[in-house]
Simulated scan of single mutants.
Amino acid sequence: MKQNAEMNKKVKATFDSIESIQEVKVSPFFKENVMQKIRTASEDIQEVTWSWFTPKIQMATLVCVVVLNLIVFVDLQETTYDSNINSFAESYGLSTSTESSILN
């Protein structure tokens, strides 16, 4: 019973403290102000995201892509169909050897 009396005192003290809390006055436009700040912050983030991709960097990227394509195109022009077929056949052991062996 002693614990029950102490618990009742703690509960009564808690309820007394709740009754002493005063109502908080909030501006009626608080939500609108907060939402406006959030929208402004998200717009700033979107602007910063694409700001690194400036026209100079776009031009440099385009030049790199074109040069890479030209290098690959020239390399493909130099190789011939026969050399590709021969390398494929040699890779998979499908080619016939024209060398004469000692046993022949």
Results as ranks from 00 to 15, higher is better:
residue 1 M to W: 07
residue 1 M to D: 05
residue 1 M to A: 14
residue 2 K to P: 02
residue 3 Q to T: 11
residue 3 Q to N: 10
residue 4 N to K: 06
residue 5 A to T: 06
residue 6 E to T: 01
residue 6 E to L: 01
residue 6 E to G: 02
residue 7 M to E: 00
residue 8 N to S: 02
residue 8 N to Q: 11
residue 8 N to G: 00
residue 8 N to A: 10
residue 11 V to S: 08
residue 12 K to Y: 06
residue 13 A to G: 11
residue 14 T to M: 09
residue 14 T to F: 10
residue 14 T to S: 06
residue 15 F to S: 01
residue 16 D to E: 10
residue 16 D to N: 10
residue 17 S to E: 14
residue 18 I to E: 07
residue 18 I to G: 00
residue 18 I to K: 05
residue 19 E to Y: 12
residue 19 E to D: 15
residue 20 S to M: 06
residue 20 S to W: 00
residue 21 I to C: 12
residue 22 Q to S: 05
residue 23 E to M: 12
residue 24 V to H: 02
residue 24 V to L: 11
residue 24 V to K: 13
residue 24 V to Y: 05
residue 26 V to C: 10
residue 28 P to M: 11
residue 28 P to C: 13
residue 28 P to V: 14
residue 29 F to W: 09
residue 29 F to H: 13
residue 30 F to A: 15
residue 30 F to W: 10
residue 31 K to E: 13
residue 31 K to S: 14
residue 32 E to T: 15
residue 32 E to M: 13
residue 32 E to A: 15
residue 32 E to G: 10
residue 32 E to W: 06
residue 32 E to Q: 15
residue 34 V to G: 01
residue 34 V to E: 00
residue 34 V to Y: 01
residue 36 Q to F: 04
residue 37 K to Q: 10
residue 38 I to M: 08
residue 40 T to V: 07
residue 41 A to T: 15
residue 41 A to H: 12
residue 41 A to C: 13
residue 42 S to L: 12
residue 44 D to A: 13
residue 44 D to H: 09
residue 45 I to F: 07
residue 46 Q to I: 08
residue 46 Q to A: 12
residue 47 E to D: 09
residue 47 E to I: 08
residue 47 E to L: 04
residue 49 T to D: 03
residue 49 T to V: 07
residue 49 T to A: 03
residue 51 S to V: 04
residue 51 S to N: 08
residue 52 W to P: 01
residue 56 K to T: 14
residue 56 K to D: 15
residue 57 I to G: 05
residue 57 I to A: 07
residue 58 Q to P: 02
residue 59 M to Y: 15
residue 62 L to N: 15
residue 62 L to K: 15
residue 63 V to M: 13
residue 64 C to Y: 13
residue 64 C to A: 13
residue 64 C to Q: 10
residue 64 C to W: 12
residue 64 C to M: 12
residue 65 V to G: 14
residue 65 V to Y: 15
residue 66 V to G: 04
residue 68 L to V: 12
residue 68 L to F: 11
residue 68 L to K: 10
residue 69 N to G: 15
residue 70 L to Q: 05
residue 70 L to Y: 01
residue 70 L to G: 06
residue 71 I to Q: 02
residue 74 V to W: 13
residue 74 V to H: 05
residue 75 D to I: 08
residue 76 L to Y: 04
residue 78 E to Q: 13
residue 78 E to K: 05
residue 79 T to A: 08
residue 79 T to R: 10
residue 79 T to K: 05
residue 81 Y to V: 09
residue 81 Y to I: 07
residue 83 S to F: 00
residue 83 S to M: 02
residue 84 N to I: 04
residue 84 N to R: 07
residue 84 N to C: 07
residue 84 N to G: 08
residue 86 N to Y: 05
residue 89 A to G: 03
residue 90 E to A: 01
residue 90 E to D: 07
residue 91 S to R: 09
residue 92 Y to S: 03
residue 92 Y to Q: 05
residue 93 G to A: 00
residue 93 G to V: 02
residue 94 L to R: 07
residue 94 L to P: 01
residue 95 S to Q: 03
residue 98 T to C: 00
residue 99 E to K: 08
residue 99 E to V: 11
residue 100 S to Q: 04
residue 101 S to G: 06
residue 102 I to C: 02
residue 102 I to F: 00
